[in-house]
Design a protein around this nucleic acid. Structure first.
Lengths: 190, 190
DNA sequence: TCCATTTCTTAACCAAAGTCAATGAAATTT
DNA sequence: AAATTTCATTGACTTTGGTTAAGAAATGGA
């Protein structure tokens, strides 16, 4: 199976022939089995990912249970907070499904930046999109009730609810699984 | 009154003589009176700010009332989501206090980037810090109860509670003013 | 297929936030 | 200083989520 990476990245910046050449040379693809832990709490991160197929979950442990901070799916960037830094991670990264991703490393990145400065523009453009998305989803989350947050997720990422266990969705929404179950029941009857 | 901008920025990147020269040339300072609206819903943003003194609040209107998304205070960057873009803003920016800030414009930025590429590093370094902070505070917010969110704000930004009306704090915490009032009462008696 | 484990749902009870309404306090304006 | 407006608190009541415990459904492995 092959993935049209260029088409996907074309959503962030125009793909010039120069950029295409740079990408063809710098892209490495890896596959991971469902359940693979890509990063452990306390571990160090030398990889970032651009997901072509599958789903990666970021979570951490608090008082013994998992708190899901994000689900990353197709065409999204997974860049751990400690990526390329010498600090231990507080988060786990886990493949929720069999996953195929482009893998980046700090070494490869700086090598490629030198060779193809245009990649920096790509990176910055994607960074801006990421910041904007964060701001927006944070605001939405804050101002919504748990029920609204669930309905909102249903609208914007309905696939997730099929792909991911509900207790993980619950912790992602900041509520208990029992509450999510009730919310779903209430939402049904309308 | 003068502000040691170099010292403040030195927290993000080392200040080289080259960078110092670039900053001396590119920094413009403006003062705003309390209550000044820097950006209106529907308006276009050509300015970003680095606050030297004062407080700026970002909010939007939903069902008639104000939803506070962020408070920016000394040494923070205020970069509207639509800064330099041709899209109308969904947010308001309002000075909660008399405010003094360095003002940036897209034109000045790209001019300075050309002249002093080192400024791009500054920008990117600050961007990374901003993303990391967002991720962290989003996670914290999600997993906390309203009471914990208030206590957390008390710890991390206790000044805000003195500087800003409580109904604005409440909407920032995603709760009603009445609830915040009760939370405060409960927290008192301990 | 059957068993074991994991995940999801339901119920009863409690605690906390939302709503609506009234009152009090503080800040602004005149 | 008085009047007005804005902001904060309180109370009664409703709604919703957390907690605990039990059981049902789905999943995965042997």
């Amino acid at each position: 199976m092959d993935y049209d990476i260029l088409e996907i990245l074309g959503k962030y910046v125009p793909i010039t022939p120069e950029l295409e050449a740079a990408l063809n040379e710098s892209v490495f693809i890896k596959s991971f089995k469902k359940g693979t832990i890509l990063l452990k709490e306390g571990g160090f991160s030398n990889e970032c990912y651009f997901i072509l197929k599958g789903c990666i979950r970021s979570y951490y442990l608090k008082d013994g249970d998992e708190k899901t901070t994000e689900f990353y799916t197709e065409e999204q960037v997974v860049s751990p907070l400690t990526y390329g830094k010498n600090t231990p991670s507080e988060h786990f990264l886990e493949c929720v499904e069999d996953t195929v991703a482009c893998v980046g490393t700090p070494e490869l990145e700086s090598e490629m930046y030198q060779k193809y400065p245009v990649l920096e523009s790509l990176n910055r453009a994607m960074g801006e999109v990421i910041i904007a998305n964060y701001q927006e989803s944070f605001a939405d989350f804050k101002m919504a009730t748990p029920t609204e947050r669930y309905l909102n997720l249903l609208k914007t990422r309905s696939d997730l609810i099929q792909r991911v266990p509900q207790y993980q969705i619950a912790s992602y929404l900041g509520i208990k699984p029992e509450s999510l179950s009730r919310i779903r029941k209430r939402a049904m009857s309308k």
